[in-house]
Amino acid sequence: MNSIRILVFSLLVLSLLNNYVSAETFISEYSILHDQPHFNEISGKQLFLGICQGCHMSEGEGAIGAGYYPALANNEKLYASGYPIYLVLEGSGNMPAFKKYLTDEQVMSVVNYIRTTMGNHARDSVSLADVQAISHR
């Protein structure tokens, strides 16, 4: 009983700490005083939670208002890897182009994340070369 309590307590502390840390660590530099605006997030999950979920929502479910944001969850369009790579880099319509803010490694990480979570089961994974073939850098 006691050990469960301790476990619950430490999980709680950990989650609070996590929230705090994520608020502190992954706010990127963007100012006319800094050279190049960029995102500091590294892993696919960090990138998704730090950026993508702003519009695509926390479970990738998308959102509907006067217009809508498409769901990433259960989205078979993501299985053609070139499609999400291109959209993240170049944008389209409401989807902003992130090429100038993200490295190819970051694009690779976030694309691999969204293709294999939230009900998506892409079998192949995206390589850096796949991203570079589209980013040309």
Partner: peptide, 19 residues
């Protein structure tokens, strides 16, 4: 603005105020 605006958009209202 910029990258930070995406990040603040991805935060809960409480996190935004805290930041």
């Amino acid at each position: 603005w910029g990258p930070n605006a995406y990040e603040f958009s991805a935060m809960s209202a409480e996190q935004r105020i805290k930041s």
